Simulated scan of single mutants.
Amino acid sequence: MPDLWLPGAEVHDLGDHAPTDQQYPPKAIAHITWDRNATAAAPQDWCPYEDLVNYFTGSGAGDAPHLIWDPFSGRAAQLFPADSRSKSLLSPTQSPTRTNRAGRVVIQIEAVFFPYCRYQGRVYPRLVDTPCAGWGRIHAWISSWGVPDEWPMGRPSDFSGHRDEQTWETRGGWYAHAHVPFNDHTDPGSWPDFASTSGTGDPPPSQQHPAPPGGSTPARYQVSINGLPYGYGAHGYQVTTVGRALVSHGFGSHYRSGPGPDWTDADTENYADYQASLGYSGQAADGVPGESSLNRLLGYLPAQRTVSVAHVVAAARTDPGAEQGHRTYGAEAAIVEQALVDEGLLDQHWVDGSFGSRTVAAYAAWQRRCGYEGGAADGIPGPDSLHRLGAAQGFAVTD
């Protein structure tokens, strides 16, 4: 039997499980949360994933889907097992089917998205314009429940409704909320292609790797740790950080080039080798990081690239005199350390989240590069020099 719960999902079981109507073919229903109304002329900030999880596990439990999916990070929360109905569809008494139950499974997914949402400064008109992180994992799981890769009423491409009762009752596959009889919503407007593991088209050239010998394919799903994505298709400084740490620990044999900021099959294979070295096996060594193994690799968990002046000053004053490897603000110190490496002032080996004596010396060299002398170049970060480093290396600085 396939997994009742999506592997890697955050489980928030609402209880109140109920069987589906087995005489109908298996279905998946695509929704977007559409929690704000925005336009091209007036975009609005994206509503955080956590807010939607809190809503559907609280006051909105009566309308809860199976899955809440964050297409930016790949995080997913599951509220009902796959073999239970969920509650996101209208099912009025005049409907010939109980719409939430009309299939051997009726798995409903709410993507946390609305048209023209603004996320980290960029506006996204359609769901398919987002990274669609984690889509490959969700699609594979739903396919394991026998839902065919087809849209009986057409793949959604706009916000118009199209509903046909006979098609709904007789054909399995994927349905937009706009396709469900006796419902009035017209979402999701778009949905990622079945052939894509993320986004709408082929992965970029840096992510195209042949399958490894033996016919097996590395794991291609994402997880979110401390708010950052990891796994195939993930992008960001944290991916480079992991790759460099794998190489420094002797687990870089699968790289043809890199490491770099795009997570590829090579990253997955190298990370799997690292997990195996820790004694993990099976799915626990599939090459997608978990919080424990990532912490063991790096000594800290990377965070969003924002550094507090007060925090790194505290680290620079505390860590050198503490026991070896002490981390006062490890994630933020590591951002500064990596920036110093990229400026040619620190060896990669010392990117460990501990603002020790070598990091202080490297930061003093940065201060001298900024024009400071004497006691003003003592290796203790100041607002001006830290802002300059952030501007040069792409991280934000707060007080």
Score class of each variant (00 low, 15 high):
L4G: 10
L14G: 05
A18H: 14
T20F: 11
Q22T: 01
P26S: 03
A28H: 07
H31M: 05
T33M: 09
D35A: 14
D35I: 08
W46I: 13
G58I: 05
S59Y: 14
A61P: 12
D63I: 03
A64F: 11
A64D: 11
A64V: 12
W69L: 12
P71A: 03
F72W: 04
S73G: 11
A77N: 02
Q78N: 10
F80S: 04
K87M: 14
Q94D: 15
S95M: 05
N100K: 03
R101I: 02
A111F: 03
F114C: 09
P115S: 13
Y119V: 06
L127E: 07
T130P: 03
P131R: 02
A133E: 00
A133W: 00
G136N: 06
G136R: 05
W141I: 06
I142F: 05
G146T: 09
G146W: 14
M153Q: 07
D158E: 10
F159E: 02
G161I: 13
H162I: 15
E165L: 08
W168R: 06
R171N: 11
N183I: 07
N183K: 06
T186G: 10
G189A: 06
S190T: 03
W191I: 00
D193Q: 14
G201V: 04
D202Q: 05
D202I: 02
P205V: 01
P205M: 09
Y221D: 08
I225W: 08
N226S: 06
T240E: 09
V242S: 06
A245K: 07
H249R: 14
H249I: 02
G260N: 13
G260H: 13
T268F: 07
D273T: 01
D273S: 08
L278Q: 14
G279H: 05
G282V: 05
Q283L: 14
A284G: 12
G290S: 00
R305P: 15
S308P: 04
V312W: 11
A314C: 13
R317T: 06
T318Y: 04
D319T: 05
P320K: 03
A322W: 08
Y329M: 02
V336L: 09
V336E: 06
L340A: 02
D342P: 02
D347N: 02
Q348R: 06
D352K: 06
S354N: 02
A361F: 04
Q367M: 09
Q367Y: 11
Q367K: 10
L389Q: 05
A396T: 15
V397S: 02
T398Y: 07
T398G: 06
